[in-house]
Amino acid sequence: DAEFRHDSGYEVHHQKLVFFAEDVGSNKGAIIGLMVGGVVIA
């Protein structure tokens, strides 16, 4: 149960990062950079 909640939280966090990247611009380099930055921060 705890693992499921953790996975759901991660999924929401990931979707927010992707949405933010798409909102800023559909530049693949920027999106990839944001994703990598999110992984480093996390």
Rank of each mutant, 00 (worst) to 15 (best):
K28N: 11
E22G: 15
L34H: 01
H14C: 10
R5P: 05
V39E: 00
Y10D: 10
H13D: 06
D23V: 00
V36D: 01
I32D: 02
S26M: 08
D23Q: 08
Q15P: 15
G38K: 01
S8V: 05
G9D: 06
S26H: 08
K16M: 05
K16R: 09
K16S: 13
V12S: 12
A21T: 08
F4M: 07
E22N: 15
E11V: 11
I41L: 05
D1A: 11
F4N: 10
V36Y: 12
R5E: 00
A30S: 00
L17H: 14
A30E: 03
E3V: 05
S8Q: 13
K28G: 06
G38W: 02
F20N: 10
V36T: 11
A2W: 13
I31L: 03
H13Q: 09
N27D: 00
V12K: 12
G38L: 03
I31C: 07
E3T: 14
D1W: 06
F4K: 06
F4C: 07
V40W: 02
G29W: 01
L34W: 01
G29S: 02
M35T: 00
I41C: 00
V12W: 12
R5S: 12
V18D: 13
V36M: 11
E11A: 10
H14M: 06
Q15L: 08
F19P: 06
A2Y: 13
S26N: 14
V18I: 12
V12Y: 10
G29C: 15
H13K: 09
L17R: 14
G33R: 01
E3W: 12
L17Q: 03
V36L: 13
E11K: 11
L17E: 07
D1T: 09
E3C: 13
M35W: 02
S26A: 13
G25S: 11
A21G: 12
V12Q: 08
S26Q: 11
I41H: 07
A30T: 13
S26Y: 06
V24P: 08
G33S: 02
H13L: 05
F19G: 06
V18Q: 12
D7Y: 14
I31H: 06
E3G: 10
H6W: 08
L17I: 14
S8F: 13
G25T: 06
H6L: 06
V12L: 14
E22L: 03
G25K: 15
A21E: 09
S8W: 11
F4Q: 10
V39S: 00
L34K: 02
A30V: 15
L34E: 00
L17K: 14
R5D: 04
Y10E: 13
E3R: 14
A21M: 14
F4P: 10
D1Y: 10
A30Y: 03
H14L: 09
Q15N: 13
E11Q: 15
N27A: 03
F19L: 15
N27C: 02
F4R: 11
M35S: 01
L17Y: 14
V40H: 03
G9W: 12
G29Y: 02
V40Q: 02
F4H: 11
V18K: 09
A42Y: 02
Q15S: 07
L34S: 04
G33D: 04
S26W: 02
A21S: 07
I41S: 00
E3I: 04
A42Q: 06
A2R: 12
K28T: 08
F19R: 04
V24I: 15
G9Q: 13
L34A: 00
G33K: 08
E11W: 03
F4E: 07
A21D: 08
V12G: 11
I32G: 01
F19D: 14
V36C: 13
G37W: 01
V18Y: 15
D23T: 09
E22T: 15
G9F: 11
S26K: 04
K16I: 03
A21I: 14
G29R: 06
I32S: 00
Q15V: 15
H13R: 10
I41R: 02
G25E: 06
A42S: 09
E22R: 14
D23M: 02
F4W: 06
I32P: 01
D1M: 15
I41N: 07
E3N: 13
A30C: 06
V39R: 02
E3S: 12
L34N: 00
L17V: 15
A42H: 02
G37E: 00
H6G: 11
V12P: 10
F19S: 05
E11C: 15
H14P: 11
V18S: 07
G37D: 00
H14S: 08
F19H: 06
D7M: 14
S26D: 05
V24K: 13
G29P: 03
G25V: 08
L34F: 03
G37T: 00
G29L: 05
G37N: 09
F19E: 04
D7E: 09
E22A: 15
F19Q: 05
K16D: 04
F20L: 10
K28Y: 08
S8L: 04
F20K: 14
G33C: 07
G38R: 01
V24R: 12
D23G: 14
A21F: 14
V39Y: 03
I31G: 03
D7K: 13
R5K: 09
Y10W: 09
G38D: 04
V36Q: 04
Q15W: 00
A30G: 14
N27W: 06
L34T: 09
V40R: 00
I41A: 03
Y10V: 07
K28D: 00
K16C: 05
G38T: 08
F19N: 07
D23L: 00
L34Y: 03
I32C: 02
I31K: 04
V39T: 08
G9P: 14
L17C: 11
V18F: 15
F19T: 09
G38M: 04
G25M: 10
S8G: 12
G29M: 05
R5C: 07
S26L: 10
G29Q: 08
D23S: 08
K28V: 05
H13W: 07
R5Y: 05
A2K: 08
H14A: 13
Y10N: 12
G38I: 02
R5I: 06
F19W: 04
A21H: 13
A2G: 12
H6S: 08
H14Y: 07
F20A: 05
G33P: 00
E22H: 15
H6D: 08
H13S: 10
A2I: 05
K16P: 15
I32K: 02
S8M: 09
H13N: 15
M35F: 00
V24F: 07
Q15A: 12
Y10A: 10
D23C: 04
V36P: 01
G33W: 05
V36G: 01
I32M: 03
S8D: 09
G25Q: 10
E11M: 06
D1G: 12
V18W: 09
H14N: 11
G33T: 03
D1K: 12
G9A: 11
G37L: 01
R5Q: 06
I32R: 00
H6R: 09
G29H: 03
E3L: 03
E22K: 12
A2C: 06
F4A: 08
G33Q: 05
E3P: 13
D1V: 05
S8Y: 10
A42E: 00
D1N: 13
I32Y: 03
V24D: 12
K16V: 07
G25L: 04
L17A: 06
F20S: 09
A21L: 14
V18L: 05
S8A: 10
G29T: 08
G38H: 02
S26P: 01
H6F: 09
G33I: 04
E11T: 15
Y10T: 13
I31F: 06
G9C: 09
G37H: 00
D7S: 15
I31R: 04
Y10C: 10
L34D: 00
A2N: 13
F19Y: 07
G9Y: 08
G25P: 02
N27E: 00
V40Y: 04
N27H: 07
A42R: 01
G33M: 02
Y10I: 11
Y10K: 09
V39K: 02
G9L: 09
F20E: 06
G9N: 11
V12A: 13
H14I: 15
A42L: 15
A30N: 08
E11F: 10
D7L: 11
M35P: 01
A30Q: 03
Q15I: 15
N27T: 04
G33Y: 03
R5W: 05
V39M: 02
E11R: 14
V18N: 09
I32A: 02
K28S: 10
I41E: 00
A42V: 11
I31W: 02
Y10Q: 11
H13A: 08
V39Q: 05
G29N: 06
E22I: 04
H13M: 12
K28W: 03
